[in-house]
């Protein structure tokens, strides 16, 4: 790392004939704040241009080509998109599955997180312990835990169907059943909702106590208080969690990849799996680039729609 403009001392011996009292343009530049700003930012800028914006543009170009990733790409105009929207039997179904997964996961996960946060936002003895337990699976996650869940979902040897049998329910085959595989993935995702809960807890602590006390004085029951005071007050936080949840779960990949390989009978073949297989299994790299751009644009459009919808529903304090 070169030292940026650290030489405040005017000792920089002027090799140019310019007098020391009038610094050259280069010296002025070197000392300027802007120069330092961009010097500090250089590593990030290199990454932005070389490993983010550059690749994005390249993948946009690749989306309009037929390309196997090895030979040179061949420009085919909008053909990839025509195939995608028109004749590819995997596109629309995988899209539908992904939206089903994301919708259910976000709706149930945000509701669960909010419920847990509301309960933990009291002076309940032991709440720190519960917070730890609920937050743990958010941090300690990934492939190892998916493998554990796959065993828990095992219809014969797993713990879940055993527990169900104890209350007189004959459990489904979970990951082996076309109807139950996706709900199983959603069920598992609910334990990863601790981060959302933490954000809700932080939001709930910003709800002025006076408002709730006033509601209590007015004789409002807890449900009415929750609907009329708490929810409006934390609506920006709810919006944030819904949006972040949607963005993350529309990209789901590792869970089905590890637990079901997209099966049985493609019932968990989500968009991420589809994209991955096209790119790294079938070497349709051009087509997969087009798919990746569609995924990106869907997320951008969805974000925009959610924010627009929210403009009328979300209450910001003091605005």
């Amino acid at each position: 790392m070169t030292a940026p403009t650290t030489t405040r001392a005017p000792g920089a011996a002027p090799r140019t004939p310019a007098p020391a009292s009038a610094p050259t343009r280069w010296q002025r530049l070197r000392r300027s704040e802007a120069f330092a700003f961009y010097l500090f930012l250089t590593p990030w800028l290199v990454g932005l241009v070389g490993l983010t914006l550059g690749p994005m543009l390249f993948s946009l170009y690749a989306g309009f080509t037929r390309w196997d990733g090895v030979n040179s790409p061949e420009w085919i105009g909008f053909d990839n998109f025509r195939v995608m929207f028109g004749s590819d039997p995997d596109f629309w179904p995988s899209f539908g599955r992904t939206f089903f997964y994301a919708g259910a996961r976000v709706a149930l996960g945000v509701a669960l997180a909010l419920a847990l946060a509301v309960i933990l936002n009291t002076r309940l003895p032991g709440r720190t312990f519960f917070r730890t337990v609920f937050f743990l699976p958010t941090i300690v996650t990934g492939v190892p835990m998916f493998v554990v869940w796959a065993w828990m979902f095992d219809p014969d040897l797993g713990i879940l169907n055993y527990l169900l049998s104890q209350v007189g329910i004959e459990g489904p085959a979970w990951l082996g059943d076309t109807t139950w595989a996706m709900p199983a993935l959603i069920l598992m995702s609910l334990t990863a909702t601790g981060g959302t809960m933490i954000i809700f807890l932080a939001g709930l602590q910003g709800v002025p106590l006076e408002l709730r006390e006033a509601a209590v004085v007015d004789g409002a029951g807890w449900w009415h208080r929750f609907r009329a005071v708490t929810v409006p007050m934390i609506s920006p936080v709810i919006l944030f969690n819904v949006l972040m949840g949607l963005i993350a779960s529309l990209q789901v990949f590792a869970e089905p990849f590890v637990m079901t390989q997209g099966g049985p009978e493609r019932s968990t073949y989500v968009f991420g799996m589809y994209l991955f297989n096209e790119a790294f299994w079938y070497s349709n790299v051009g087509y997969a680039s087009a798919l990746a751009w569609v995924q990106f644009l869907v997320i951008v459009v969805l974000t925009f729609l959610v924010l627009r919808f929210a403009r009328r529903r979300v209450h910001y304090l003091g605005s």
């Binding site: 690749p55 993948s59 963005i247 990746a292 990106f296 997320i299 974000t303």
Partner: peptide
């Protein structure tokens, strides 16, 4: 860049 899905970068990064 916080909003970028990793897929869009991973395919070209691979190349």
């Amino acid at each position: 860049t916080m909003m970028l899905p990793p897929f869009i970068l991973l395919i070209p990064s691979y190349s």
